[in-house]
Computed example of a mutant assay.
Amino acid sequence: MRTDIFARLDREPEPPKIEIPRMSRTRLALFGGTSAFYAAIVVAVLASTWLVALDWKLMLFRPYEQWPEQHAFLDYFVVLGQRGPTAVMVAAWLGWRSWRQHTLRPLLALGAALLLLNLTVGAVKIGLGRLGPHYATQIGSAEMFAGGDIFPSGHTANAVVTWGILAYLATTPRARRYLSALSAVVSLGVGLTTVYLGTHWLSDVLLGWAAGLLILLALPWCEPLIGRAEAWILDLRDRWRSRRALTPSRPVAAGGPRPGLVPQRDPAPQPEGGAPHEPVAVAGTAAARPSGSAATTRTATHSSPRAHAMRSERSPVTPTGSRRPPHSRPPVGG
């Protein structure tokens, strides 16, 4: 029995039609507003404006020293923004959704979102090279282009994308509202937790929220590519099944003879008097077919059974011949 996900897709009942989000005017307006906010945060940090001063005030305040009793819990809570654990948890849920909905779209949408996240956030991190609060060298400085990689906050952006994808893929308005509220609370909590622990500036978190939201808003542009990828994977699955169905059930050793049908004829009726049957010819290969007198002897050996003679009529036979002396006639006239 097949237990792969494709076999389960075939056995499940057909789900209701799933509506795929489109790039509406509202979504376009949100995308434009979030892009402007993203650019404003980058400019404010590059220009060392009041936002950088606020970053330093929060850093010198050291929230983890003001409320140390929350430190142990928030050390575990921030894991909800780490890419590895969250990707595994969300992929498990979306894999079950793929089984129930007869489509690979949930898993492919998650893969596309994580790919965009790694490309966009990773490129900005490396390009701007900002140092984190624990590695800052000069008070009041933006710490840009110093070889760091914390701007924007990867934990925050990842929390927005991985938990927000659940709301993006929701099939009912009610589920979408609940999942949107849940993802917003988790992503806000993860971002503020990194500020509490002193691993990120506040501006890092603001840019991480904007970066994750931009990816979610841009996903409808990826839907045609996701549809083509799903069709290609399912077509590859069908071709693999066809080749597997044509594979012989019993493999044949390399160079060995292939099994074939051996035609046989019904044995001829036995004549009266106990005469032996004529030898039955068996179809075979030319190499296995004996020739000459050896062929006659070998064929007679394997001929059909005949009537047995009485024991008194048998002549004892030795490897050199019969032990009975030859019959001699008396001479004529003797």
Score class of each variant (00 low, 15 high):
residue 128 L to W: 04
residue 320 T to G: 13
residue 151 F to I: 06
residue 19 E to A: 15
residue 306 R to D: 08
residue 235 D to F: 12
residue 108 L to S: 07
residue 100 R to T: 10
residue 252 V to R: 12
residue 20 I to H: 05
residue 87 A to G: 13
residue 153 S to L: 06
residue 145 F to D: 04
residue 122 G to S: 07
residue 166 L to K: 00
residue 265 R to T: 15
residue 102 H to S: 11
residue 134 H to Y: 12
residue 209 W to R: 03
residue 170 A to V: 02
residue 104 L to V: 03
residue 286 A to K: 10
residue 118 N to K: 11
residue 191 G to I: 03
residue 167 A to L: 04
residue 6 F to D: 02
residue 314 R to A: 14
residue 125 K to A: 05
residue 184 A to L: 12
residue 120 T to N: 13
residue 187 S to E: 07
residue 200 H to M: 04
residue 215 I to E: 01
residue 156 T to S: 10
residue 82 Q to A: 14
residue 16 P to W: 00
residue 27 R to Q: 10
residue 108 L to D: 00
residue 62 R to F: 00
residue 276 P to N: 11
residue 239 R to I: 04
residue 283 A to F: 07
residue 195 V to N: 02
residue 316 P to F: 09
residue 293 S to P: 05
residue 199 T to A: 12
residue 270 Q to F: 07
residue 81 G to M: 05
residue 190 V to L: 09
residue 238 D to T: 14
residue 240 W to G: 13
residue 235 D to H: 14
residue 93 W to K: 04
residue 196 Y to N: 02
residue 168 Y to T: 01
residue 279 P to I: 03
residue 238 D to P: 00
residue 180 S to C: 08
residue 55 D to V: 00
residue 297 T to C: 12
residue 85 P to L: 08
residue 156 T to R: 04
residue 94 L to T: 01
residue 148 G to K: 08
residue 11 R to V: 11
residue 233 I to E: 04
residue 44 A to S: 13
residue 232 W to V: 09
residue 75 D to V: 09
residue 63 P to G: 10
residue 314 R to Y: 08
residue 24 S to H: 08
residue 147 G to Y: 01
residue 278 E to I: 06
residue 90 V to Y: 02
residue 30 L to C: 11
residue 44 A to K: 05
residue 112 A to K: 00
residue 287 A to P: 03
residue 236 L to V: 07
residue 213 L to Q: 07
residue 202 L to Q: 06
residue 95 G to E: 01
residue 283 A to G: 11
residue 282 V to F: 08
residue 332 V to I: 14
residue 141 S to Y: 02
residue 73 F to M: 12
residue 53 A to H: 14
residue 294 A to G: 10
residue 119 L to W: 11
residue 226 I to A: 06
residue 129 G to P: 01
residue 299 T to F: 13
residue 133 P to K: 05
residue 106 P to K: 02
residue 184 A to K: 01
residue 91 A to V: 04
residue 9 L to R: 10
residue 180 S to P: 03
residue 306 R to P: 00
residue 27 R to G: 01
residue 122 G to K: 03
residue 3 T to Q: 13
residue 241 R to H: 11
residue 202 L to S: 02
residue 329 R to N: 13
residue 216 L to E: 00
residue 246 L to Y: 07
residue 113 A to T: 05
residue 56 W to T: 06
residue 64 Y to C: 07
residue 288 A to L: 10
residue 95 G to V: 02
residue 66 Q to K: 15
residue 3 T to C: 08
residue 169 L to Y: 02
residue 241 R to L: 15
residue 251 P to F: 13
residue 96 W to I: 08
residue 115 L to V: 08
residue 98 S to F: 05
residue 106 P to W: 04
residue 107 L to N: 07
residue 247 T to S: 07
residue 109 A to Q: 05
residue 316 P to G: 05
residue 81 G to V: 01
residue 66 Q to A: 15
residue 153 S to V: 08
residue 177 R to Y: 03
residue 279 P to Q: 07
residue 158 N to H: 06
residue 234 L to F: 09
residue 268 A to L: 13
residue 128 L to P: 01
residue 97 R to T: 09
residue 191 G to L: 03
residue 190 V to F: 09
residue 52 V to N: 04
residue 51 L to F: 11
residue 245 A to R: 14
residue 214 L to D: 01
residue 97 R to C: 08
residue 97 R to N: 07
residue 55 D to C: 06
residue 43 V to D: 09
residue 159 A to I: 02
residue 181 A to M: 12
residue 259 P to Q: 07
residue 35 S to D: 00
